[in-house]
Each structure stands twice: as C-alpha cells, then as structure tokens.
C-alpha cells in the first residue's frame, strides 16, 4: 500500500495550485509572481507523476521532465526581464506599472 493514494495526491495538487493562483493574483511584485507561477507548475507536475504512478506508465515522469524544462526556461526569461526592467531605472518591481506601450508605465 503506497503512502499516498491517487485521490490524496490530486487533493494536494489542487490545494497547492490554488495557493499559487491566489499568489499570482495578489502579489504585485514580479519576483513573487514568478514564484507563484513555479508553485502552480509544480502542482501540475505532481498530477502528472501521480497519474503515471496510478496507471504504471513512464509517460507521467517524462512529462515531469518536460515541465521541469519549461519551468527552467520560464524562470530564466522572467528573471532576465526583471533584471532588464530594473536596470532601465524602474523604481519598483510592480507588475502593474508596465501597462502602457513603449515601456513608459505610470509608476
């Protein structure tokens, strides 16, 4: 008997996903938004692994690896953008200030 049943894992993944979603909606700091995205990605990856374990298929973990690569790319590019914005003299990392075209936010 495994420690986790499939149902429990899905429950866990759902809760973690919701926490990430709430985080991305609440936080205005872009670093925190990226972290929230990572939490959501982890929740989905967990569902893949759980499904793979449930039906005894290696595809679940293959998808996990792919999600990992996706998260790595997303984080690298996102952090790069944050650095770029910071270097261009934007005073805060407020995501809401970058709402106008031409890079001139209201912040």
């Amino acid at each position: 008997m495994p420690a986790f049943s499939f149902n429990d894992t899905l429950l866990l993944a759902t809760i973690v996903f919701s926490v990430g979603l709430a985080g991305i909606l609440v936080r205005r700091n872009m670093v925190f938004m990226l972290m929230a995205l990572d939490i959501m990605l982890n929740a989905t990856a967990l569902v893949f692994v759980a499904a793979g374990a449930r039906w005894h298929d290696a595809t679940g973990q293959v998808m996990f690896v792919l999600v990992l690569a996706l998260a790595a790319v997303e984080t690298a590019v996102g952090l790069g953008i944050i650095m770029c914005l910071h270097a261009h003299g934007r005073p805060t990392l407020d995501a809401d200030t970058g709402n106008l075209l031409g890079g001139q936010g209201r912040g």
């Binding site: 909606l25 205005r28 938004m33 809401d96 970058g98 709402n99």
Partner: peptide, 13 residues
C-alpha cells in the same frame, strides 16, 4: 485590457 498582467491572470482564472 488595461495592460496589467495580474488582471489578465484574473480574467483567465
């Protein structure tokens, strides 16, 4: 379409 990412995320959710 106010250009704010968080609102877009909220609309998606």
């Amino acid at each position: 379409d106010n250009g704010r990412v968080r609102w877009y995320a909220a609309w998606i959710a």
